[in-house]
Nucleic acid binder design. Structure first.
Lengths: 320, 320
DNA sequence: CTGAAAGCGCTTACAG
DNA sequence: CTGAAAGCGCTTACAG
């Protein structure tokens, strides 16, 4: 760790090039409508390069009123594979448009100010809907908040795909395995509700249970007793728990118990038997997020009220 | 998405409270050495609250020269479980000290400026050592760069623990399973080298191979032929690949082939048989990172040149 | 064709 | 006890 050197400013460049600070700004920002000789432009650029000049972001943001930054507050629950993939794609797309995506962690113990105050992003795009007061507080900072038009209940079509897959493969008594990760309760409830409806529509029965490591074998035994032959899971980790319990119970998978996960995370391919799962169009979703942010940054309304393209589809492997 | 309202400034608060802007600043920042009547203080605070005044971060950073922000550029390779845990802890610790930790993604396609320019953090703390020119460029921005005193070769004692565990359990021909994730090559090489040394010291033989999904069974067959009975893996995903291949080959684990992973990621408990692995003191490492950043922010040298407490230790499960 | 000046929102010596 | 003023580093009308 060495001591930082004093950074060079536009004034330094101006002095070195023998021009005014405005000229430096005009040249370096290629401001249109200015008539500056090529010789001067060359000189300014050369001096800027020589001095390693980089405009000070805070000063620029202060005067321009925009930081070209998008803040994504992460949800309370641990961020899973799918969301990471989506955010990676959103980040790349925003980068192409000259915007930087920053995610904020789930700690806000309170000593540091909230990241939107520290960062002063142009846009805040929360994954989970913010509390109304919180959103209002952010807006009072002059920041635009992008709220999704849809709540969790619209993102559960993947459950239909799980149920349809199991029904197609001849299962008539199903179970839904949900999880207890704190903060995911609402999402879990929405998915169970959707599973119930899908099963009712298909005329099959549905059990459900919260599955944890310590109870997985017990749950599996109960389900077997109730005639369950196919299980849809909240995510791949929960499915792995079911799969493990089934194996330890000496059940054959999928002939005695079929299991389908959700998210198609890396673990799905690593399990034996490999896990059928639900894959999302994370690229499409990521670009959709980026488009929402960019539209908000441009000051307009969201691009389309259309639902993003989830394209949830079954990846069929050995477990079903 | 609603249009943002104009945010209120210190000038608004001053006008509303009938005082000067300096007084507002003194009151709100509790600047010591000022003698301001309680009545005035009350009034300023009340108006600030009523107007929802929040100091503009960029203006404040511009004048104070500090943003109370720590930037952690993430490595090129996909961030695994252990690093996330470490960063979560570092984030919480920094938050307690009033600093915000921001991580920068691995995209820098180049249209957006590097995050350190956009963010102007006080400290940059890269996980992987930065290229010298890059570090120099950051320092020219007046930002302190914290370089670890140690390179990867010092973080491989966990390999000793893997080898010792297998040797303790009676294995005399070992194998090291490495991975091909781009960017992790150096780390992988360092660990294999360490495994070789540990095996030489223990007087046991060592094979090694890069393991991928498509080649895992082949590799396992080869190893069996060479008499290998214990495998140490670069990470838990690679171990899962070996485990899966062993099961598909009809081998009994651990009696015919023992496997130990690395990182103790969630998958280790989900596999059947459950995977022995190496757990780190992520809490200690996270706090160590935070301490390094804080020491740098305070302007001093790093707190201690001591190595961080990795405390790598074996978590013994069914696979060994 | 180029520079002096104002101003973004704040903090902090310095006068009263 | 409190306010006027300078200045952080930039951008951008506005004069020459």
């Amino acid at each position: 760790m060495t001591t930082p050197t004093r950074r060079s400013t536009a004034a330094d460049v101006a002095a070195a090039a023998g021009v005014s600070r405005s000229t430096v700004s005009f040249v370096l920002n290629a401001t249109p409508g200015q008539t500056i000789s090529d010789a001067v432009r060359q000189r300014v650029r050369a001096e800027a390069a020589r001095l390693g000049y980089r405009p000070h972001a805070h000063a620029r943001a202060l005067v321009s009123g925009a930081s070209r930054t998008v803040l994504v507050p992460l949800p309370e629950w641990p961020v899973e594979y799918v969301l990471r993939q989506i955010l990676d794609e959103a980040e790349a797309t925003l980068d192409d448009a000259g915007y930087t995506l920053v995610t904020s962690g789930r700690h806000h113990s309170g000593n540091a100010r909230p990241l939107w105050e520290t960062l002063q992003p142009d846009i805040v795009l929360p994954i989970e809907r913010l509390a109304a007061e919180e959103a209002a507080a952010i807006r009072e900072l002059g920041i635009r908040v992008v709220e999704f038009d849809s709540d969790e209940t619209e993102y559960v079509e993947s459950v239909d795909a799980q149920v349809a897959h199991l029904v197609d493969r001849g299962h008539r008594v199903l179970a839904y395995a949900s999880t207890t990760v704190p903060g995911m309760g609402r999402m879990s409830d929405a998915r169970i509700a959707r599973a119930r409806r899908a099963c009712a529509d298909a005329g099959v029965r549905l059990q459900d249970a919260v599955v944890e490591e310590s109870t997985a074998r017990f749950v599996v035994r109960e389900w077997r007793r109730a005639g369950v032959t196919g299980v849809a899971s909240f995510n791949d980790d929960t499915a792995a728990l079911i799969l493990g319990a089934a194996i330890r119970e000496g059940l054959r998978v999928p002939s005695e118990l079929a299991v389908i996960g959700h998210d198609d995370s890396p673990i799905a391919r690593l399990l034996v038997p490999s896990l059928s799962s639900i894959r999302f169009d994370t690229t499409g979703l990521g670009r959709h997020l980026a488009a929402l942010a960019l539209a908000a940054a441009a000051g307009g309304p969201p691009p389309t009220a259309q639902r993003p393209p989830t394209h949830a589809r079954v990846v069929h492997r050995e477990s079903t």
